[in-house]
């Protein structure tokens, strides 16, 4: 009787053990996507974020074994990708490229949902350093250095696209850090910022440091004042940094435009790891890096942890400047 009892107990224990092992099995096996993975891009085709996503998507699709599809959801300065991602299933089949600090403004200064810190951050797509250029149009206020700008008596007119994307927070925060009075004129389309600076519609503007936005500088119709990087950009060695001009805070990575990849909130870590691995493969592809960097973006891989920290840092910086940002947001 006793033996039977012991035997049945043993059987029970074994059964439980087998059941547990069976239940645990899926968790130990590497997760694989079962259908195409979608990358949400909050901007139109042909832009820096879109091009990089398409290029990286090709490599990632080989690593993941399923097609990677780019879904452009332009509008609201990139916000659509954030709201759609937030409501997507955390099953690894939807991820998004998100532009910061632009999206941090919606949260920290506009008080909008969702909290970016709840996303499962994967890594960096590209970083997008910004630079300031000033008009050289005769008869207009002309600025040549940050120190000189600090002496401005009346607000310096700065052209921006709007309060949506990255240009706005970067312009507000840098003016605040350097300490010059500024007046924003918003509503220009990207190309109009170049014709505007040539025409002298405004004195300064901040744009991503890529070739297409430096044409006025090349032709001498504008002067590059500063690049927001700790060191000079290897492709644009003539543009001085803020550090050189005595404003070390302008070298902070929180001031660089960052396109970061994220998965929806509460994505299981094993799924996030698989996607991260695929991204790392894309980032290690030398030919791909060359293509993406051809127009000035920088491919600088970042781990999951560092990306999460960068998001928190950027939110904190925007939060610190939120009073100033709110002055221009209605």
């Amino acid at each position: 009787m006793r033996i039977l009892n012991t035997l049945s107990k043993a059987c029970l224990v074994m059964l439980v053990a087998v059941a547990l092992a069976l239940a645990a099995k899926p968790a130990t096996a590497a997760w694989k996507p079962s259908k195409p993975v979608t990358i949400l891009v909050g901007f139109s085709v042909g832009g820096a974020m879109d091009t990089a996503a398409r290029l990286q998507g090709e490599v990632m699709s080989k690593a993941l074994g399923v097609p990677v599809v780019i879904r452009n959801v332009p509008g609201a300065g990139g916000r659509n990708s954030v709201t759609i991602l937030n409501r997507s299933k955390p099953d690894g089949h939807t991820m998004a490229a998100i532009n910061l600090p632009g999206q941090a403004v919606n949260q920290a200064a506009r008080g909008m949902d969702p909290d970016l810190r709840t996303f499962t951050w994967i890594g960096r797509q590209v970083s997008n350093p910004y630079f300031m250029q000033a008009t050289t149009k005769a008869g207009k206020d002309q600025w040549t250095s940050l120190k000189q700008m600090k002496t401005a008596k009346k607000p310096i007119k700065a052209g921006i696209t709007g309060t949506g994307g990255n240009t706005f927070p970067i312009s507000v925060i840098t003016a605040n850090l350097v300490g010059f009075p500024v007046e924003f004129i918003a509503g220009f389309k990207g190309p109009e910022l170049i014709t505007g600076i040539i025409r002298g519609d405004f004195s300064i503007t901040n744009l991503p440091l890529v070739k297409r936005w430096t044409t006025a500088v090349q032709s001498g119709e504008a002067k590059a004042i500063v690049v927001y990087l700790p060191k000079r950009h290897p492709k644009f060695p003539n543009i001085p940094t803020g550090v050189e001009q005595g404003f070390p805070e302008l070298g902070s990575s929180s001031l660089v435009g960052q396109n970061l990849y994220a998965l929806p909130p509460k994505t299981p870590p094993e799924i996030a790891s698989v996607i991260e691995e695929a991204l790392v493969k894309a980032n290690n592809d030398a030919a791909l890096k060359e293509k993406i960097e051809a127009n000035g973006n920088i491919v600088a891989p970042l781990s999951k942890q560092d990306t999460t920290k960068l998001v928190a840092d950027m939110l904190a910086l925007v939060q610190k400047n939120s009073a100033l940002l709110k002055k221009y947001i209605k």
Binding site: V69, T83, I84, K89
Partner: peptide, 15 residues
């Protein structure tokens, strides 16, 4: 390679 809307009954998310 575009995915058409799959319908809320099949788990599609409304924007």
């Amino acid at each position: 390679q575009r995915t058409l809307f799959e319908g809320v009954l099949f788990g599609a998310i409304l924007p």
